[in-house]
Design a protein around this nucleic acid. Structure first.
Lengths: 344, 344
DNA sequence: ACATTAAATGCAAACGTTTGCATAAGTTTT
DNA sequence: AAAACTTATGCAAACGTTTGCATTTAATGT
């Protein structure tokens, strides 16, 4: 004989009040006198009343929970974004339900279908690599905010960094320390952010009257460490070797650094290396790697903020909004050519 | 005028059937004829019926969702565990709601309170560093499974690795390659897992007739890279320097490796280094670090599996269960003293 | 003293699904 | 052909909270 949970009605009976009064008292409704609120809350504590939030959600048609779709949780970037989302959501009394698309469109479709069943008040999503149309998101009745990998040619709320400008900044930093032959390890250009980084790289060269040499650009499928090693080795075989390498992420930057180091090139003297994303490894590896802080945590916070604002928006005038976060270049030893450092 | 969502009743009216029949048809109940099931499903698709899972949860008193409490999402270990949980839960049609305790007991208490309101069918938790009693978990009416940092002297379901045995294995590996003066960089012994690693280290020494030297053991608060550097530097100042170092995690292993390398010691010739957890960095850094695979992903899967089994358990005979996962030593260059490698 | 207003509480329906039990129709057994 | 099942469907209540509206009581104004 397991004991039933205490409900509003139990409290009402106990106190000879209407359930509605109890409900309002606990919700701190202004129409209820302070006196009754006090009694109710006291009795609630005494009987160990725990509100049934499912019943509440059901009645109010509001779950105060957000659905998050990420490619994979165990990628550091995404775990930081999720952390930012959770942090903001928690303070706003929302909770966060997570799904991994595993970069599969099929799975993304199924997740969206699950979320359709109305368990969340809003959705934050980073598109899977396979996603090339957004019909499934159109069907959703709740607001959606995309981050990082966002839909193109489709009106939606988004939180992104300015990859193009950031890539220019990074490339120009290499130029500013005297690099003339700057190489680039690129991600898959089918993904907009990697394309933007590539374009930024090219734009910086052009802007500074440096030629774009196609053998100084190497493409990867997924910017893995192993792919980075291959790319760097190809650079190493070139006649005119690069004196600076801008890598589209930090893993490939580590690869480049190690390959050139092993071939007895000095970093940054012979070749400077710059990465992207500020992964933990970038400040541990020797020499520490200059990189672009991609603001993952802040991106999560901004996305949650934007989404919750949209959920709670009274005036439904704004249909979509795009937030572009400012990145910053974190300059470390791998590009400190001209600077004598005496730090221990 | 926003359109209302299609409900079971709408379908029922449309088809001149009772809502109960619709409900059963969609749930594929055996009492419903195949013919009606067909009509119902067809009509459901036609009208775009999406079941309201909140209503269902409310009625069934079952949410098919799990609550996860982790210290921080952006710690690689935990993100791997979460990934394992999500993976298993997804296949079992559960979804996963995440909370970060930020290693704060207060926050853990509040999260438990939130989860109390019955939005989850079960909970997976890694205790916060501050947690020293488990009263708040006792109040929960749903099954709880702990992982990694688990309660002591308290009956509960747990998923852990055998830290003690793993530490013995790691230390004996150092001994097997000829190390005589083995140091240890330890975590905070207040945390059971770090204490177990320390004890395993000591046990291995004793078992192999090596003395336990207290200046060869350095303690850290949180096993950070920076702390690791400090510990390693202290080892470097010793008269009898270590010829092998067993570190309680990979970050401190990287520190040790770099500090000794910088001081012109060769790894592993002069000093061998072994880490713990198999972080990505361990196989990227030069030389790659021998480490203990802590099975984070599998730990998540096992926890989810155990929890869901407990949720769905018909016979409530088993009140708690502990799963100990087998670790494995991943041997890499940082301990390959006697082996000539010709790998490129 | 009576009308008006304000403050506090109660009533009852509603949210969309599920489920035990009843019922109707059809089938088999005797 | 009646009795006993089987099969398929319907009825109606229930889950616990919230909310618009009605009602009661108290307070204020004239």
């Amino acid at each position: 004989m397991k004991k039933r949970r205490i409900t509003l009605k139990d409290l009402a009976n106990e106190l000879n009040l209407a359930p509605s009064t109890i409900s309002r008292a606990i919700a701190n409704h202004p129409a209820i006198s302070e006196a009754t609120k006090k009694i109710v809350n006291q009795k609630a504590k005494e009987l160990g009343f725990i509100p049934n939030s499912i019943a509440s959600s059901f009645r109010k048609k509001k779950t105060t929970s957000l659905g998050i779709i990420v490619p994979r949780i165990d990628i550091h970037f995404h775990s930081l974004v999720i952390s930012g989302i959770e942090e903001f959501a928690y303070k706003a009394s929302y909770n966060v339900t997570i799904f991994q698309s595993k970069d599969s469109l099929d799975r993304e479709l199924e997740i969206v279908r699950i979320l359709q069943t109305k368990m969340v008040d809003g959705i934050i999503a980073c598109l899977s690599l396979e996603t090339d149309n957004y019909e499934h998101f159109k069907k959703l009745e709740v607001p959606v905010v995309f981050y990082d990998r966002v839909p193109e040619n489709y009106e939606a709320s988004k939180v992104v960094i300015n990859d193009f400008e950031s890539a220019i900044k990074a490339t120009e930093h290499l130029i500013s320390i005297g690099c003339k032959r700057i190489a680039h390890i690129a991600g898959n250009p089918a993904t907009s952010i990697f394309k933007a980084r590539l374009e930024g790289y090219k734009a910086a060269l052009t802007k500074n009257n440096l030629p774009i040499k196609h053998n100084l650009i190497e493409y990867t499928k997924e910017l893995s460490y192993e792919e980075g090693v291959k790319c760097a080795k190809r650079f190493l075989k070139l006649q005119g070797k690069p004196d600076g390498i801008f890598c589209a992420n930090d893993y490939t930057a580590v690869s480049a650094l190690q390959v050139f180091k092993k071939a007895n090139y000095e970093i940054p003297k012979d070749v400077a290396v710059i990465g992207f994303s500020n992964y933990p490894i970038s400040k541990i590896i020797e020499p520490k790697i200059t990189t672009v802080n991609d603001r993952a945590f802040e991106m999560g916070q901004a996305a949650a903020n934007l989404l919750i604002r949209q959920i709670e928006e009274k005036n439904e005038i704004i249909s979509s909004e795009t937030i572009v976060l400012e990145t910053q270049l974190i300059i470390r030893k791998s590009t400190k050519k001209n600077i004598h450092t005496n730090t221990p």
